[in-house]
């Protein structure tokens, strides 16, 4: 079943070559596994003291990184008051966790490799220009690396940029607390009363 395919081995080699040439057209995971050479295990731990939910994909380092990225993706749709900011991040992390958990084996592995790479200080600094811990990184620095990934000539970084903006943007704006004020109808009271799937059982 798990056959090792000569095609993908050679494409890894050609990525390194193409990467040096400044034009790669590969998904980032197989390349990052070459660069990072390791991958950590997912860790489940309580979301916060009052919540029994556990993350099924995100580990502690991921949480710190994703929490730093959310306000950058959200821009001025991110609340200004500190207590609302905390609650917005607490609401969004489990949504991102669920989305990542359900991506399927291959994508889960790819994202894991990307995240692990970005947890290694030197690799992170070289690829993003962010050298400090994620929790201490200024939003401008994060926005700057996102912009440079977007316009990179390496497909690797374009794909990573797209993964971050797609997943975090999707999880942020699909939250009824965020989309409701924008005018999105969602589940109205009428529908909630009329449809059996919304009835308490």
């Amino acid at each position: 079943m798990m056959r090792s395919s000569p095609v993908s081995k050679s494409s890894r080699r050609s990525f390194l070559k193409a990467g040096l040439m400044g034009s790669a057209a590969l998904s980032f995971g197989s390349a990052l596994s070459v660069i990072s050479g390791c991958s950590s295990k997912p860790v489940s731990y309580p979301l916060n003291a009052s919540d029994k939910a556990v993350y099924r994909f995100l580990n502690k380092e991921d949480v710190s990184m994703v929490a730093a990225l959310i306000p950058v993706i959200a821009g001025d749709s991110f609340p200004a008051a500190p207590e609302q900011q905390r609650s917005a991040i607490d609401q969004t992390l489990p949504r991102i966790d669920l989305f990542l958990y359900r991506l399927g084996d291959f994508n889960r592995k790819e994202i894991r490799q990307l995240f692990d790479l970005l947890h290694m200080r030197v690799a992170r600094g070289l690829t993003t220009g962010v050298w400090q811990d994620w929790s201490e990184a200024p939003a401008e620095d994060i926005a700057a690396f996102m912009q440079s990934w977007k316009h990179s000539s390496l497909a690797l970084f374009n794909n990573a940029h797209n993964a971050f903006t797609d997943i975090i943007g999707f999880a942020w704006y699909s939250n009824p607390d965020v989309s409701g004020p924008l005018g999105y109808s969602g589940v109205t009271d009428t529908l909630r009363a009329a449809l059996p799937q919304f009835q308490q059982t």
Binding site: A74, G75, D76, W172, Y173, L182, Y184
Partner: peptide, 25 residues
């Protein structure tokens, strides 16, 4: 045009995306 899908399909993020999303309707 549902909000999560619109956000994910747009190539932007931050204030530019937030402006697009304010125009959702």
């Amino acid at each position: 045009v549902h909000p999560g899908s619109l956000a994910a399909q747009e190539a932007s993020y931050g204030n530019r995306l937030a402006q697009r999303m304010r125009e959702l309707p």
